[in-house]
């Protein structure tokens, strides 16, 4: 089973890497933030799998912290945009 957990964790890491393309494409800062959101949920899954494979439940605590931090990061992002939304220069063209 350990091979299965590690293999899946590796593939999930790959999906994050593919998701990073969204950061390159944008077009707005909010679209880029979505990649971070994807990273949050997927990273929790990866850490849970790694913890199970290693038999070390401390890694699950890291997963818990990760879930918390992703939420805080996103809320901070939305609040920051409240403050300096006037500095956003990118145009959202809706298609790509």
């Amino acid at each position: 089973m350990t091979e299965l957990y590690l293999g899946l964790a590796l593939i999930l890491l790959l999906t994050i890497a593919i998701g990073l393309v969204r950061i390159l494409r944008g077009p707005t800062a909010t679209d880029r933030m979505l990649a971070a959101q994807l990273f949050g949920t997927t990273a929790v899954a990866i850490l849970l799998l790694l913890g199970q494979a290693a038999g070390n439940s401390a890694i699950w605590d890291v997963a818990l912290i990760f879930a918390l931090l992703t939420a805080v990061a996103a809320v901070t992002f939305v609040r920051r945009k409240d403050i300096d939304s006037t500095t956003e220069t990118e145009e959202h063209d809706g298609t790509d």
């Binding site: 909010t30 933030m33 979505l34 959101q37 949050g40 949920t41 929790v44 849970l48 699950w60 997963a63 818990l64 879930a67 918390l68 992703t70 939420a71 996103a74 809320v75 939305v78 945009k81 409240d82």
Partner: peptide, 24 residues
């Protein structure tokens, strides 16, 4: 413990999605 982690991600994910959509 696993259930709590999932619930936290679920609630946080739904809240964050709403905040981002509202901001947009």
């Amino acid at each position: 413990r696993l259930l709590l982690i999932w619930l936290l991600v679920l609630v946080a994910g739904a809240t964050v999605a709403h905040l981002i959509a509202r901001k947009a």
